[in-house]
Nucleic acid binder design. Structure first.
Lengths: 146, 146
DNA sequence: TATTGTTATACTCTATAACTATA
DNA sequence: TATAGTTATAGAGTATAACAATA
C-alpha cells in the first residue's frame, strides 16, 4: 500500500471544486441565468431585500448590484418595489418566475446531494463530514491569517 | 448522535469550493495576475504551446486566448515566438518572470497542502482521499450523463 | 479546403468616482 | 452629515463572425 501525500488530498479538493463549477455552469446554460445573477436570486430566498444589503452580502459594490438587478428585471425574475418607510431604498422582489428559479435551485441541490451521497452509508458519511469540517476549519484559519 | 444527511456533505463541498476560490483570489491580488492568466501560465508548465492548443485545453475560444496572451505579454510573463515549422502558428513561451510565477504557484500549492493535511495522520488521510475519489467518480459520471 | 490567429463587435461582471434624492 | 442608488467611465473575460496568411 502506497503512502498518500497531503498534495494528493489537495488535488482532489481542487478537482471537486472544478466539478462544482462545471455543474453550476450547466445550470446557467439550462436556466439562461449567469452565476452572479443566480447568487443574487439565491439571496432573495429570505424575502425582498434592499440593493445595499445585497451588495454587502455578496461582497460586491452597490454599483454592481444595480447592473445585476437590471439584468434580472429585464429577464423577468425580479421587480424593483418601493421600500415602505425609506424612500431612498428599493426592495428587490422575486416575481413568480424568480421564485420558481429559486425553488428549482433548491431542488437541484438536494437532487445532486442524493445522487452523490445517497448510497454512502451512515458511518462513512458521518466520517466524511467530520473530515470536511476539519479541513474547512483549517482552511478558514489560514485565510484569516493572511 | 444525529444522523448526517447527504445535503450536509454537499454543503461542505460547496464551502470548500468557495474557500479554494478565495485562496485563488488572494494569489491573484499578490501576484497581480488574474485567474484566467494564471490558468494559461499553468498550462505552459510543459513547455511552449500554440494558442490553438491552449484554447482547446482551456475550453475557450481562440479569440479569448489572443486577449489573455496580449495581457501576459504586456506584463512580461510570456513572449510570442514563431513556430519552427508552421508559419501560421505561434508558440507562447514563458519568460524568466513567467517561469518564476509558475514555480511560485507550485510552491504555494505544496505549502497549502502541508498546512491543511500535514498533521492528519496516515490512515485518516488515506481514508479521506478514498472518499474524495469516490465522490469525484460519481460526480464525473453525473456530469457526463447530461 | 482546412487551420491559425487576428480584427470587429458585443455582452457580462467588476471597480472607482461623482452625483441626486432622501434620512 | 450620512445613506441608497444611479450615471459615467474603465478594464477583464467571454462569445460569434468575418478575414488574412499559411498549410
Amino acid at each position: 500500500m502506497t503512502a498518500r501525500s497531503a498534495t494528493e488530498a489537495l488535488d482532489r479538493i481542487l478537482r471537486l471544486s472544478m466539478l462544482v463549477s462545471a455543474d453550476l455552469a450547466r445550470y446557467e446554460r439550462e436556466s439562461g441565468l449567469t452565476a452572479a445573477r443566480v447568487e443574487l436570486l439565491w439571496r432573495l430566498a429570505g424575502g425582498p431585500t434592499t440593493q445595499r444589503a445585497l451588495a454587502a452580502a455578496m461582497e460586491v459594490t452597490p454599483r454592481n448590484v444595480t447592473g445585476l438587478v437590471d439584468g434580472l428585471v429585464a429577464s423577468g425574475h425580479v421587480t424593483r418595489e418601493p421600500h415602505p418607510t425609506d424612500r431612498r431604498a428599493i426592495l428587490v422582489t422575486p416575481t413568480a418566475l424568480g421564485s420558481e428559479a429559486i425553488a428549482g435551485l433548491r431542488a437541484s441541490h438536494a437532487d445532486l446531494a442524493r445522487q452523490l451521497f445517497g448510497d454512502l452509508g451512515r458511518d462513512r458519511l458521518a466520517g466524511f463530514i467530520t473530515l470536511l469540517d476539519e479541513t474547512i476549519a483549517r482552511f478558514s484559519a489560514l485565510m484569516e491569517e493572511s
